[in-house]
Each structure stands twice: as C-alpha cells, then as structure tokens.
Nucleic acid binder design. Sequence first.
DNA 1: CATCCTGATGAGTCCAGGTCGCAATAGTGT
DNA 2: ACACTATTGCGACCTGGACTCATCAGGATG
Lengths: 165, 165
Amino acid sequence: MTRQQASAAPPEARATEIRLDGNAIDEVMSLIRERGGRSTTPRRAVLEELIRAAGDLRVAEQIVSGVQAGHPNIGDSTVYRTLDLLEELGLVSHVHLGHGPSHWYLSGNRRRWYLTCTHCGNATEADPAAFDSLATDVAGRTGFVLDAGHFAVTGICASCMSSAG
Amino acid sequence: MTRQQASAAPPEARATEIRLDGNAIDEVMSLIRERGGRSTTPRRAVLEELIRAAGDLRVAEQIVSGVQAGHPNIGDSTVYRTLDLLEELGLVSHVHLGHGPSHWYLSGNRRRWYLTCTHCGNATEADPAAFDSLATDVAGRTGFVLDAGHFAVTGICASCMSSAG
DNA sequence: CATCCTGATGAGTCCAGGTCGCAATAGTGT
DNA sequence: ACACTATTGCGACCTGGACTCATCAGGATG
C-alpha cells in the first residue's frame, strides 16, 4: 500500500567478497566507481564505521552517531542513503529483530539468521544449517526460495523457558 | 532502547478456542468480563469486523475504517487498544509481512506462518509442517522454542524465480 | 432501578524512524 | 582546469502507532 513493498534485494545485487581489513574501503570504492558512482568522504566514513563494528549488529542511529563523531557535518539522511547503497551492492544487510529499529551489519555474501526471544528481548544468531534444511524443504515443495535474513524468527529462548516456564 | 522491546506474548496468554460464528462475540465478551474487563460497543465492533474478514489478513487501518463505517464515533486508538487486548487473550495475532504496517487476523490458538516475496511483494501462507520440523530441530539443538508467527520469512517466490531469473 | 466506582473511551498530541525535495557542493573523465 | 552530474546536507514531511487526560458508561451493589 505504502511506498516500497517490494524494493529489497534487486536481482542485480551482486554478492561480493569483502574482507574486513584496511583495503576493504578502497575495494568498495572501486566497485562503486565501476557502477558510475563516486567515492566520497561520507561513504568512506560509513564503511569505516561498519568495519569498526567488526560485524556486530548496529542500529542506524548508532552508525549515524559513530560517523558524526569523526565527521560532524555528515547528515543523517546521507548515512541512511549510504546504507541502502551498500545493501544494494550486497555488502551490508539489515535485519529486523523486533518492533524497534532495524539492525545493520557488514554481511559480505553471507546473510545471517537470528532468533529473538519475545520474553527477554535478546537476539542470538542461529546455526544456518537448520535454516538451510528448511529452505531446501520449502523450495522442494513450493519453489519458494527462502532468504535467511531480513526478519528474525521469534520464540522463547532456553533460559526464559526454564525460568518463566 | 525505546519503549517496548520484549512485551509480546506474555506468558499468561491463554489460547482460547474461538469459532467464527455469531456467538463468538458473546463468548469473547464473557472471557473479557471474567478477567475484570468490560463488554463495550467498540470491542464488539472490532470483533465483528475481524469476523467479517473471515480470517483474512487486514492492516489496522482497514480494521479502523471498517469499524468506523458502522460506528463513526469510535476512535482509532480504541481500535488499536482493542486489538492489543484481543492479542493478549490469544484470539488475534499480528504478523509483519514486510516494511509496511502489520497485518492482523483472527487466529484462535493457531498462529500462521507467512512467506513474503521480496521481488513482487506477495505474501503466502506456508505449510506449517515444514516450519514445525525446523522448530523441533532448533529446540533440540539449542532449547530455543520457535514461534511461527509474528514475522514473515522473506525470499523469492516461484513465479518471480522463473520470470526474473 | 438509582448509585457509585472504576475501567474504557475519544480527541488530540507526541514520538520514532525514517524518507524526500532541492539548492549547493564536490568527484572525475577529459 | 573544466564541465557535467552524482551526492550531499538541510529541513520539512510522512507513516504507523503510543500516550495523556478529561469524560463517559458498564455493571456490581444496595
């Protein structure tokens, strides 16, 4: 109904190998330039911030303030736009863990699969093997190709199960 | 960080059998009264609207306008609050299919599992059996008890796979 | 059936989390 | 160094929903 329902993961998305070392930024900038884009300070700053997170999850607001700590004049919307760009390139992903803001991480070509406990709110990354067999099963039955990321699966974690019954 | 992170599905939620016939409303009102709540016109109106949807998904805005078609003086926030109440009672559920608003349905005690295509945006209900075996697998490995509903799993549907590659 | 107590309501305001339009700025191929 | 145009930063705006609070009305009681 609203703006963008089916905008994520355009088929052109090219999952590129990206290492988390210092050269990564230059490699990404080359990739952007190949596509006719430009290597700019804000884009480098956002990438630096994501690399600094070392693959951990960050909400957009954290990324914005991390970037602005070093570059106070970079605007919020530029960070959002850069995250979207990097996601199109297949370099970063965002996941919705619950009702709050989405969480971003440098994914390379490996999306993750998260479980969120609706009781304590904690999110944990899950073993991809279990999800893969679900995906194989569903693809075989229906042809629908599941994508692990984007939304966490909710449930009750082991410790909440044992404590709260 | 914000208000409610871990509020969904309080342990007291009692999944009650609810039929979709005309007596359902009275039964639900009795249930509400047992808990010290009151049977009110807005609550009946919201339930009527959900029953009218016959189990189909509705976004909150549709439910609000459906209710207000018959009762123009019922406020939006009352509808939201009533949906929350009915969800606590285990009678309705909401699911996030994508980035837009959440979708509500009369669930009784049976939550559903949806697949959303990130290419065409369509959501389809999936066979619960596949999800159940995933849930059994994950519970065995980690003790985390998965809940099918609340978030859809994204992917690419069969027709988008074949047409767009 | 009149009263009272308190849960529920509706109108309006506020908030988070982005998104958008646009004039100004700054990469980059030549 | 230039020109061309992708990007930026700013601020206004938008959606979906939560909150406040004075008022209203179920329904248990007498």
